[in-house]
């Protein structure tokens, strides 16, 4: 469903010069699977997912969604994914219903299908009590739900969640995770990025630990725990990141030595 090969993305930074936000990242995600992208802030998770959603273009490497290349067929890709992140806000001056309806139309759903789909969606997400509330008046939880409804209104085969529980209280976060789980049960191909271990343990079939633009480890949780002899996920995560930073520092000092 999703195939990412040697994806690289660099950008110009005033302070640091050229920075590679993604450095030869490769992974694959199959239908009916939740793939967890685990990494600290600034690891490159969002950049990677933005490339998958065709909002950014890769500097090099390829990424395909349902067989469509994100660079050559961006529209086809966008039709097949539902994308939700912290940066995909909802419109202040639109109600939840209008918002979902608008996106349904943009995805080209016929009016009758759209109507049925919206009713169903508002039922399953329990959004009926605020369907006519303007975005500006919604609580954070309502907004997140409206955002999910917007992302999956066209029933896409691939869904990308970028830190969907960020800033939510436990109750709402739990509900969001339940929604993700139920989507998986419907056979969707899901990428789920987060920096919270608990969510990964609970949801993800396979995970990739990403840090400073590179994937440090990838596999199912038990595989990783076995490979790195660390039964605790959190410790595993820390170990990997520490080790990578250590490595970087050595290379850097070697680099300096070589230069001096």
């Amino acid at each position: 469903m999703i195939s990412v090969q040697h994806l690289t993305k660099g950008f110009d930074d005033l302070r640091r010069g050229w920075v590679a936000a993604l450095d030869h990242v490769s992974f694959e995600v199959r239908p009916g699977e939740i793939f967890g992208l685990l990494g600290p802030n600034g690891a490159g998770k969002t950049t990677c997912l933005r490339i998958l959603s065709t909002v950014l273009r890769p500097s090099s490497g390829t990424a395909t969604v349902s067989g469509f290349d994100v660079v050559t067929h961006p529209t086809e890709v966008r039709k097949r994914i539902g994308f939700m992140s912290n940066n995909t806000g909802i419109y202040d001056r639109m109600t939840a219903w209008e918002m979902a309806e608008y996106y349904g139309r943009l995805y080209g759903l016929p009016e009758d299908v759209l109507k049925v789909r919206l009713e169903q969606l508002f039922d399953t997400l329990q959004m009926n009590d605020f369907r006519d509330t303007l975005g500006a008046k919604m609580s954070t939880g309502m907004k997140q739900k409206a955002s999910i409804a917007r992302a999956i209104v066209h029933d896409p085969p691939v869904i990308i969640f970028d830190e969907p529980t960020c800033g939510l209280d436990v109750l709402v976060a739990r509900k969001v995770l339940a929604i993700v789980q139920s989507l998986k049960d419907q056979g969707k191909c899901i990428i789920f990025s987060t920096h919270i271990m608990r969510e990964v343990e609970k949801l993800c079939d396979r995970i990739a630990i990403i840090h400073k633009g590179t994937i440090l480890a990838m596999g199912t949780l038990p595989e990783l725990q076995e490979e790195h002899h660390q039964p605790d996920t959190e410790e595993l995560f820390f170990d990997l990141i520490e080790r990578h930073d250590e490595q970087c520092r050595t290379t850097q000092s070697e680099f300096r030595l070589a230069n001096s």
């Binding site: 050229w18 090099s60 680099f255």
Partner: peptide, 15 residues
């Protein structure tokens, strides 16, 4: 367009 020059392709932490 957008291709990273060769000299920038080393990892960030080295730069």
């Amino acid at each position: 367009n957008g291709l990273v020059p060769v000299k920038h392709q080393h990892p960030t932490c080295v730069s």
